[in-house]
Design a protein around this nucleic acid. Sequence first.
DNA 1: CCATGCTAAATACG
DNA 2: CGTATTTAGCATGG
Length: 339
Amino acid sequence: MRGLSIDDTLGKLLMATIDKLKIKKSERSNASSCVNNITAKVVTHLKQNVNWCKDIERLRTGSYYENVKVSDAVEWTFKSLIWPEHFSVALKRHPNKHALHRFLNEDKTIQASEMLSEFRDAVKEAPNVILAVTLERNEISSPNSVHMLKMEENGKTISIDFVLGLKVHRASWPDFTKDGFKIETWLGKKEKANMKHRPFYLVSKYEGKGHTDAWRISFSHVEKEILKRHGHSKTCCEDVGYKCCQKECLKLLKYLLQQLKEDDSKSRKMSKFCSYHAKTTLLHACQLLEDFVQHLRKCHLPNFFIPSHNLLRQASPSSCDFLANEIEFQLNNNFLIFS
DNA sequence: CCATGCTAAATACG
DNA sequence: CGTATTTAGCATGG
Protein backbone atom coordinates (compact mmCIF):
# COMPACT_ATOMS: atom_id res chain seq x y z
CA MET A 1 0.00 0.00 0.00
CA ARG A 2 3.05 2.21 -0.10
CA GLY A 3 2.60 5.28 -2.21
CA LEU A 4 -1.06 4.68 -2.75
CA SER A 5 -3.59 7.32 -2.16
CA ILE A 6 -7.11 6.38 -1.26
CA ASP A 7 -8.19 8.20 -4.40
CA ASP A 8 -6.51 5.60 -6.59
CA THR A 9 -8.64 2.86 -7.99
CA LEU A 10 -6.32 0.35 -6.43
CA GLY A 11 -6.28 2.20 -3.14
CA LYS A 12 -10.07 2.26 -3.10
CA LEU A 13 -10.26 -1.45 -3.83
CA LEU A 14 -7.82 -2.32 -1.09
CA MET A 15 -9.57 -0.10 1.43
CA ALA A 16 -12.89 -1.67 0.49
CA THR A 17 -11.35 -5.11 0.89
CA ILE A 18 -10.01 -4.22 4.31
CA ASP A 19 -13.48 -3.06 5.25
CA LYS A 20 -14.91 -6.34 4.05
CA LEU A 21 -12.41 -8.26 6.16
CA LYS A 22 -13.30 -6.43 9.35
CA ILE A 23 -15.06 -8.49 11.93
CA LYS A 24 -18.58 -7.36 12.73
CA LYS A 25 -19.05 -6.36 16.32
CA SER A 26 -21.99 -8.71 16.72
CA GLU A 27 -20.09 -11.60 15.17
CA ARG A 28 -17.19 -10.98 17.47
CA SER A 29 -19.47 -10.82 20.42
CA ASN A 30 -21.25 -14.06 19.52
CA ALA A 31 -18.09 -15.95 18.83
CA SER A 32 -16.24 -14.82 21.89
CA SER A 33 -19.07 -15.54 24.31
CA CYS A 34 -19.47 -18.97 22.77
CA VAL A 35 -15.74 -19.68 22.96
CA ASN A 36 -15.28 -18.22 26.43
CA ASN A 37 -18.22 -20.14 27.76
CA ILE A 38 -16.95 -23.48 26.54
CA THR A 39 -13.35 -22.82 27.40
CA ALA A 40 -14.27 -21.91 30.97
CA LYS A 41 -16.16 -25.19 31.31
CA VAL A 42 -13.31 -27.21 29.90
CA VAL A 43 -10.73 -25.53 32.13
CA THR A 44 -12.85 -26.02 35.25
CA HIS A 45 -13.35 -29.65 34.35
CA LEU A 46 -9.63 -30.18 33.85
CA LYS A 47 -8.76 -28.48 37.12
CA GLN A 48 -11.21 -30.60 39.04
CA ASN A 49 -10.67 -33.95 37.44
CA VAL A 50 -7.08 -34.28 36.30
CA ASN A 51 -4.58 -34.29 39.11
CA TRP A 52 -1.76 -32.71 37.12
CA CYS A 53 -4.10 -30.01 35.79
CA LYS A 54 -4.94 -28.47 39.17
CA ASP A 55 -2.87 -25.39 38.54
CA ILE A 56 -3.14 -25.07 34.78
CA GLU A 57 -2.98 -21.68 33.24
CA ARG A 58 -4.27 -20.51 29.93
CA LEU A 59 -3.08 -18.18 27.21
CA ARG A 60 -5.25 -17.02 24.36
CA THR A 61 -3.19 -17.05 21.20
CA GLY A 62 -3.68 -16.91 17.47
CA SER A 63 -4.88 -14.34 15.01
CA TYR A 64 -8.17 -13.54 16.73
CA TYR A 65 -6.34 -12.31 19.80
CA GLU A 66 -3.74 -10.52 17.74
CA ASN A 67 -6.41 -8.55 15.90
CA VAL A 68 -5.38 -9.90 12.53
CA LYS A 69 -8.21 -12.34 11.97
CA VAL A 70 -9.81 -12.20 8.55
CA SER A 71 -13.56 -12.09 8.76
CA ASP A 72 -14.16 -13.90 5.51
CA ALA A 73 -12.75 -17.21 6.67
CA VAL A 74 -15.27 -20.04 6.58
CA GLU A 75 -13.90 -21.34 9.81
CA TRP A 76 -12.77 -19.43 12.84
CA THR A 77 -10.19 -20.96 15.05
CA PHE A 78 -9.55 -19.89 18.60
CA LYS A 79 -6.50 -21.20 20.32
CA SER A 80 -5.89 -21.77 23.97
CA LEU A 81 -2.45 -22.78 25.10
CA ILE A 82 -2.84 -24.63 28.38
CA TRP A 83 0.00 -25.63 30.66
CA PRO A 84 0.48 -26.89 34.20
CA GLU A 85 2.21 -24.11 36.09
CA HIS A 86 5.36 -24.72 38.13
CA PHE A 87 5.85 -28.17 36.71
CA SER A 88 9.62 -28.00 36.20
CA VAL A 89 10.57 -26.70 39.62
CA ALA A 90 8.30 -29.09 41.46
CA LEU A 91 9.37 -31.99 39.30
CA LYS A 92 13.02 -31.37 40.02
CA ARG A 93 12.55 -31.06 43.76
CA HIS A 94 10.17 -33.94 44.24
CA PRO A 95 10.57 -36.17 41.23
CA ASN A 96 8.69 -39.08 42.74
CA LYS A 97 5.83 -37.23 44.35
CA HIS A 98 4.93 -34.86 41.61
CA ALA A 99 1.71 -35.49 39.72
CA LEU A 100 3.61 -35.47 36.49
CA HIS A 101 6.27 -37.95 37.51
CA ARG A 102 4.61 -40.91 35.88
CA PHE A 103 5.06 -39.21 32.52
CA LEU A 104 8.82 -39.22 32.93
CA ASN A 105 10.92 -41.49 30.78
CA GLU A 106 14.07 -43.08 32.17
CA ASP A 107 16.15 -40.36 30.60
CA LYS A 108 14.02 -37.69 32.35
CA THR A 109 12.36 -36.61 29.13
CA ILE A 110 8.63 -36.24 29.32
CA GLN A 111 6.25 -38.55 27.50
CA ALA A 112 4.34 -36.19 25.29
CA SER A 113 2.02 -38.75 23.79
CA GLU A 114 0.77 -40.20 27.08
CA MET A 115 0.26 -36.81 28.59
CA LEU A 116 -1.54 -35.56 25.55
CA SER A 117 -3.79 -38.61 25.39
CA GLU A 118 -4.89 -38.00 28.95
CA PHE A 119 -5.36 -34.33 28.30
CA ARG A 120 -7.42 -34.96 25.22
CA ASP A 121 -9.61 -37.55 26.87
CA ALA A 122 -10.29 -35.20 29.75
CA VAL A 123 -11.24 -32.36 27.46
CA LYS A 124 -13.70 -34.65 25.70
CA GLU A 125 -15.32 -35.59 29.01
CA ALA A 126 -16.03 -32.03 30.04
CA PRO A 127 -19.75 -31.83 30.85
CA ASN A 128 -22.18 -29.55 29.03
CA VAL A 129 -19.81 -29.28 26.14
CA ILE A 130 -21.52 -31.18 23.39
CA LEU A 131 -19.32 -30.84 20.39
CA ALA A 132 -17.83 -32.80 17.61
CA VAL A 133 -14.29 -33.63 18.50
CA THR A 134 -11.77 -33.88 15.76
CA LEU A 135 -8.33 -35.08 16.61
CA GLU A 136 -6.39 -34.77 13.48
CA ARG A 137 -5.62 -31.47 11.99
CA ASN A 138 -3.72 -30.41 8.99
CA GLU A 139 -0.19 -29.97 10.24
CA ILE A 140 0.51 -27.38 7.58
CA SER A 141 -2.51 -25.16 8.06
CA SER A 142 -1.98 -24.92 11.78
CA PRO A 143 1.22 -26.42 13.10
CA ASN A 144 0.41 -25.70 16.74
CA SER A 145 -2.92 -27.41 16.87
CA VAL A 146 -3.33 -30.76 18.42
CA HIS A 147 -6.83 -30.75 19.71
CA MET A 148 -9.92 -29.25 18.30
CA LEU A 149 -13.53 -28.79 19.23
CA LYS A 150 -15.82 -27.77 16.44
CA MET A 151 -19.25 -26.23 16.45
CA GLU A 152 -21.65 -24.40 14.23
CA GLU A 153 -22.63 -20.94 15.35
CA ASN A 154 -24.92 -18.93 13.09
CA GLY A 155 -23.76 -20.87 10.08
CA LYS A 156 -20.11 -20.26 10.81
CA THR A 157 -17.80 -23.01 11.94
CA ILE A 158 -16.03 -22.13 15.11
CA SER A 159 -13.28 -24.32 16.39
CA ILE A 160 -11.31 -24.21 19.57
CA ASP A 161 -7.88 -25.70 19.78
CA PHE A 162 -6.70 -26.68 23.20
CA VAL A 163 -2.97 -26.87 22.91
CA LEU A 164 -1.12 -28.60 25.70
CA GLY A 165 2.21 -27.05 26.52
CA LEU A 166 4.93 -26.94 29.11
CA LYS A 167 6.27 -23.60 30.17
CA VAL A 168 10.03 -23.55 30.44
CA HIS A 169 11.82 -20.93 32.49
CA ARG A 170 15.48 -20.78 31.63
CA ALA A 171 18.16 -18.17 31.75
CA SER A 172 17.93 -17.98 27.98
CA TRP A 173 16.28 -19.49 24.97
CA PRO A 174 17.83 -22.54 23.29
CA ASP A 175 20.92 -22.10 21.13
CA PHE A 176 19.16 -22.62 17.85
CA THR A 177 17.26 -19.37 18.40
CA LYS A 178 20.50 -17.43 18.72
CA ASP A 179 20.46 -15.75 15.31
CA GLY A 180 16.74 -15.34 15.11
CA PHE A 181 14.27 -12.88 16.61
CA LYS A 182 15.84 -9.87 15.01
CA ILE A 183 13.87 -7.02 16.51
CA GLU A 184 16.75 -4.74 17.56
CA THR A 185 16.27 -2.18 14.82
CA TRP A 186 12.58 -2.30 15.31
CA LEU A 187 11.70 -2.52 18.97
CA GLY A 188 15.19 -1.96 20.32
CA LYS A 189 17.85 -3.93 22.13
CA LYS A 190 16.34 -3.44 25.55
CA GLU A 191 13.01 -4.75 24.44
CA LYS A 192 14.68 -7.74 22.84
CA ALA A 193 16.64 -8.58 25.97
CA ASN A 194 13.45 -8.13 27.92
CA MET A 195 11.52 -10.57 25.81
CA LYS A 196 14.33 -13.07 25.77
CA HIS A 197 13.80 -13.43 29.49
CA ARG A 198 10.30 -14.68 28.87
CA PRO A 199 9.82 -18.40 29.18
CA PHE A 200 9.28 -20.47 26.09
CA TYR A 201 6.75 -23.22 25.63
CA LEU A 202 7.06 -26.80 24.56
CA VAL A 203 3.95 -27.78 22.73
CA SER A 204 2.95 -31.39 22.47
CA LYS A 205 2.67 -32.76 19.02
CA TYR A 206 0.21 -35.56 18.54
CA GLU A 207 1.40 -38.34 16.29
CA GLY A 208 -0.93 -41.11 17.35
CA LYS A 209 -0.87 -43.42 20.32
CA GLY A 210 2.43 -45.17 20.97
CA HIS A 211 4.38 -42.87 18.74
CA THR A 212 7.67 -41.35 19.70
CA ASP A 213 7.26 -38.38 21.96
CA ALA A 214 7.56 -35.04 20.36
CA TRP A 215 7.49 -31.52 21.65
CA ARG A 216 7.79 -28.51 19.47
CA ILE A 217 9.02 -25.15 20.70
CA SER A 218 6.50 -22.35 20.60
CA PHE A 219 6.84 -18.63 20.95
CA SER A 220 3.22 -17.72 20.35
CA HIS A 221 3.13 -15.57 23.48
CA VAL A 222 6.01 -13.48 22.10
CA GLU A 223 4.40 -13.31 18.68
CA LYS A 224 1.27 -12.00 20.28
CA GLU A 225 3.19 -9.38 22.16
CA ILE A 226 5.17 -8.07 19.23
CA LEU A 227 2.13 -8.12 16.98
CA LYS A 228 0.72 -5.62 19.45
CA ARG A 229 3.73 -3.44 18.72
CA HIS A 230 3.60 -4.16 15.05
CA GLY A 231 5.09 -1.01 13.55
CA HIS A 232 8.58 0.07 12.70
CA SER A 233 9.08 1.73 16.02
CA LYS A 234 7.97 1.14 19.54
CA THR A 235 5.64 4.08 19.46
CA CYS A 236 3.97 3.15 16.20
CA CYS A 237 0.31 4.16 16.06
CA GLU A 238 0.58 6.07 19.31
CA ASP A 239 0.76 9.43 17.58
CA VAL A 240 -2.56 10.89 16.61
CA GLY A 241 -2.97 11.23 12.89
CA TYR A 242 -0.41 8.63 11.93
CA LYS A 243 -1.56 5.10 11.58
CA CYS A 244 0.56 2.39 10.04
CA CYS A 245 -1.05 -0.33 8.00
CA GLN A 246 0.95 -3.44 8.68
CA LYS A 247 -1.88 -5.36 10.26
CA GLU A 248 -4.10 -4.42 7.36
CA CYS A 249 -1.43 -5.63 4.94
CA LEU A 250 -1.18 -8.89 6.80
CA LYS A 251 -4.92 -9.33 6.60
CA LEU A 252 -4.84 -8.69 2.86
CA LEU A 253 -2.06 -11.20 2.33
CA LYS A 254 -3.89 -13.78 4.41
CA TYR A 255 -7.02 -13.14 2.41
CA LEU A 256 -5.09 -13.48 -0.84
CA LEU A 257 -3.70 -16.85 0.24
CA GLN A 258 -7.15 -17.91 1.32
CA GLN A 259 -8.71 -16.97 -2.01
CA LEU A 260 -6.04 -18.87 -3.92
CA LYS A 261 -6.47 -21.92 -1.73
CA GLU A 262 -10.20 -21.93 -2.33
CA ASP A 263 -9.75 -21.88 -6.09
CA ASP A 264 -10.03 -25.54 -7.05
CA SER A 265 -7.73 -25.16 -10.01
CA LYS A 266 -5.02 -23.81 -7.75
CA SER A 267 -5.58 -25.50 -4.43
CA ARG A 268 -3.20 -28.36 -5.17
CA LYS A 269 -0.30 -26.00 -5.76
CA MET A 270 -1.34 -24.00 -2.71
CA SER A 271 -1.58 -26.86 -0.27
CA LYS A 272 1.74 -26.23 1.45
CA PHE A 273 1.13 -22.55 2.12
CA CYS A 274 -0.53 -21.22 5.25
CA SER A 275 -1.25 -18.03 7.09
CA TYR A 276 1.76 -18.55 9.32
CA HIS A 277 3.92 -17.85 6.29
CA ALA A 278 2.19 -14.48 6.01
CA LYS A 279 2.61 -13.76 9.68
CA THR A 280 6.28 -14.72 9.60
CA THR A 281 6.87 -12.36 6.72
CA LEU A 282 5.40 -9.57 8.81
CA LEU A 283 7.61 -10.51 11.74
CA HIS A 284 10.66 -10.34 9.52
CA ALA A 285 9.60 -6.70 8.99
CA CYS A 286 8.19 -5.76 6.69
CA GLN A 287 7.20 -4.70 3.21
CA LEU A 288 5.03 -7.79 3.14
CA LEU A 289 4.12 -8.50 -0.45
CA GLU A 290 7.50 -7.66 -1.95
CA ASP A 291 9.23 -9.52 0.83
CA PHE A 292 6.94 -12.50 0.62
CA VAL A 293 7.58 -12.81 -3.12
CA GLN A 294 11.32 -12.68 -2.49
CA HIS A 295 11.08 -15.42 0.11
CA LEU A 296 9.10 -17.50 -2.35
CA ARG A 297 11.59 -16.99 -5.18
CA LYS A 298 14.31 -18.33 -2.91
CA CYS A 299 12.06 -21.04 -1.44
CA HIS A 300 13.34 -19.80 1.85
CA LEU A 301 11.37 -18.29 4.70
CA PRO A 302 13.14 -18.86 7.99
CA ASN A 303 11.15 -19.31 11.16
CA PHE A 304 11.38 -15.95 12.88
CA PHE A 305 12.78 -17.46 16.06
CA ILE A 306 14.70 -20.38 14.60
CA PRO A 307 16.55 -19.22 11.49
CA SER A 308 17.75 -22.69 10.57
CA HIS A 309 14.17 -23.83 10.23
CA ASN A 310 12.86 -23.12 6.74
CA LEU A 311 9.09 -22.85 6.78
CA LEU A 312 8.97 -23.45 3.04
CA ARG A 313 10.87 -26.72 3.20
CA GLN A 314 7.80 -28.71 2.27
CA ALA A 315 6.77 -26.50 -0.59
CA SER A 316 8.25 -27.47 -3.93
CA PRO A 317 10.19 -24.87 -5.93
CA SER A 318 7.51 -25.00 -8.58
CA SER A 319 4.72 -24.26 -6.10
CA CYS A 320 6.75 -21.41 -4.60
CA ASP A 321 7.21 -19.95 -8.06
CA PHE A 322 3.57 -20.53 -8.77
CA LEU A 323 2.51 -18.48 -5.74
CA ALA A 324 5.09 -15.76 -6.42
CA ASN A 325 3.73 -15.44 -9.95
CA GLU A 326 0.16 -15.33 -8.69
CA ILE A 327 1.00 -12.53 -6.29
CA GLU A 328 2.85 -10.54 -8.92
CA PHE A 329 -0.04 -11.04 -11.28
CA GLN A 330 -2.40 -9.60 -8.68
CA LEU A 331 -0.02 -6.71 -8.00
CA ASN A 332 0.06 -5.87 -11.71
CA ASN A 333 -3.66 -6.31 -12.23
CA ASN A 334 -5.17 -4.24 -9.46
CA PHE A 335 -5.93 -7.26 -7.28
CA LEU A 336 -8.69 -8.62 -9.46
CA ILE A 337 -9.03 -11.41 -6.96
CA PHE A 338 -10.47 -9.05 -4.33
CA SER A 339 -13.15 -7.52 -6.52
C1' DC B 1 -10.52 -15.27 43.17
C1' DC B 2 -12.97 -10.86 41.53
C1' DA B 3 -13.20 -5.61 40.80
C1' DT B 4 -11.28 -1.93 38.27
C1' DG B 5 -9.36 0.69 34.86
C1' DC B 6 -7.05 0.76 30.51
C1' DT B 7 -6.50 -0.29 25.27
C1' DA B 8 -7.81 -1.48 20.52
C1' DA B 9 -11.25 -1.76 17.28
C1' DA B 10 -16.00 -1.50 15.44
C1' DT B 11 -19.64 1.46 15.00
C1' DA B 12 -23.03 4.93 16.34
C1' DC B 13 -23.52 9.73 16.28
C1' DG B 14 -23.15 14.67 15.33
C1' DC C 1 -15.76 13.37 8.00
C1' DG C 2 -14.01 13.32 12.97
C1' DT C 3 -15.46 12.13 17.65
C1' DA C 4 -17.88 9.44 21.23
C1' DT C 5 -19.53 5.13 22.74
C1' DT C 6 -19.43 0.20 23.21
C1' DT C 7 -17.26 -4.15 23.72
C1' DA C 8 -13.79 -7.79 24.57
C1' DG C 9 -9.42 -8.57 26.30
C1' DC C 10 -6.08 -7.92 29.65
C1' DA C 11 -3.05 -6.05 33.32
C1' DT C 12 -3.13 -4.81 38.05
C1' DG C 13 -3.90 -5.14 42.69
C1' DG C 14 -6.38 -6.38 46.53
